[in-house]
Nucleic acid binder design. Structure first.
Lengths: 240, 240
DNA sequence: CGGCTGTTTGATGAGTGTCAACGAATGTGG
DNA sequence: CCACATTCGTTGACACTCATCAAACAGCCG
């Protein structure tokens, strides 16, 4: 993997037409779909809504109407268990689509909140479906995005130890930034260790100890809400 | 939950028009979509292909062309890790759709095999897409099924102990049978404990001990490839 | 400055994985 | 139909990862 570009650390964002709806990955790089279709999509979306930390994008139980795409910042999807505790089931970074869990029965199943301040776009679903009836490629894109999410979950459901869980998550974020032209080795990381531990199914203390160990072994460090992958080969070796 | 019907144990199957493509759940029961649309779907599918235990429905890496629906029996979806070991990432029973992991980039990501002998139907994807361009409801059904799968994975990714993992799986199977008019308390269960342990992320020995404990506590028993839920309230209590 | 929230550290134990071995069930070939 | 091989499930002993509890520390904001 090459490092082509290192830019300002906080809230790097996608341009319109760069989210998953309008792009797909070829050789680790994002490529746009046809511009006529992008124009059609742009005509229905509502762009760049600013949001503060901990504010809500959509709430579990609310009527499903929209999909959303992250423009900048990081978002978390929270599921409330029957026992009443919150479990973070997904984390989103710029370009990713949120809201697929609402399609099934017309109600969102999770609550999505901003982890840090950021911005997002609104994609009204029924207009999007109208477009899908006319543009086959748009229908295909939506299904492909959902398929990708299914694959992501199939493969996550993996038997990793604590260190591998963390490294695997950091690698996913790294890959996503890289596919959008940012540095794979250094990027913003605003999610709290508490939230991350919850998402990875670990105790907060365990996660803290794993970070410490990774820093001691000069593999990875976290400082000022910024991840630095110190030694990429060693980093990747953790997952073997 | 009421028990309306107890039938022969092995290989109970769905009728055509009863799989997830043509039905949705209302109040724990499956209801069919419009018959004109079912007819359209039936015109493109290839029905009731018999298959023996361990035979392959589709293989990881093969070109995506079809979705599949289980008609009878049980199927497993196997992912080959980079280290070369097999992890079972999903399990399917009658009515469920297989193959969504192929849409994303045109290649299946997992291999699907029959756990027991059974039968399945083939749904060619591009003809299905053609239908979706004309029938909005069909497009919606496909997206809803994918959404349901996403939700299923979001919620699985849960922090259960060994006993809860098993009970949760058995409950999912029970619910699915019940929604199709079969007994919720007694149903066929042909998957091997090895496969099930793999799927649940447990050691085979641990799973065996959990079954033993559940039997001792008169909650659940497994005999002759048949699950019996002995005490439904106690059974459900395990998940609290 | 005090009161948050988020992170770190240490001590301890429960839950599971691993290893080894055996028994039960199932399949196979003569 | 029997003898053997193979897969599948069971049991016990042990080690290890990680959750839990308790407490202190660091950073941030009013």
């Amino acid at each position: 993997m090459l490092d082509t570009k290192i830019d300002t650390p906080i809230n790097r964002s996608t341009n319109c037409g760069d989210c998953e709806l309008c792009t797909h990955v070829v050789n680790n790089r994002r490529v746009r779909i046809q511009s006529s279709e992008i124009a059609a999509i742009e005509s229905i979306i509502d762009s760049h809504i600013m949001i503060e930390k901990n504010q809500i994008v959509y709430e579990a139980g609310a009527t499903f109407q929209n999909l959303f795409t992250v423009h900048s910042g990081m978002f978390k999807s929270v599921y409330l268990t029957q026992q009443g505790d919150e479990r973070i089931v997904d984390v989103f970074i710029p370009g990713q689509i949120m809201g697929f869990d609402g399609i099934h029965d017309g109600k969102y199943k999770t609550t999505v909140k901003a982890v840090s301040s950021g911005s997002y776009c609104v994609i009204p679903f029924y207009p999007l479906q109208e477009l899908s009836m006319k543009h086959r490629d748009i229908q295909t894109r939506v299904m492909k995005m959902m398929s990708e999410k299914i694959i992501q979950f199939e493969i996550i459901h993996s038997e990793y130890n604590a260190q591998q869980k963390l490294v695997s998550f950091v690698k996913d974020v790294s890959d996503l930034y890289f596919s959008r032209g940012f540095s794979a080795k250094q990027f913003p990381f605003q999610i709290s260790q508490r939230d991350l531990a919850n998402y990875l199914g670990l105790a907060e203390e365990t996660l803290s100890r794993v970070f410490k160990k990774l820093k001691k072994n000069e593999i990875l460090s976290l400082a000022e809400h910024q991840i630095t992958i110190i030694d990429m080969p060693k980093f990747l070796q953790v997952l073997e």
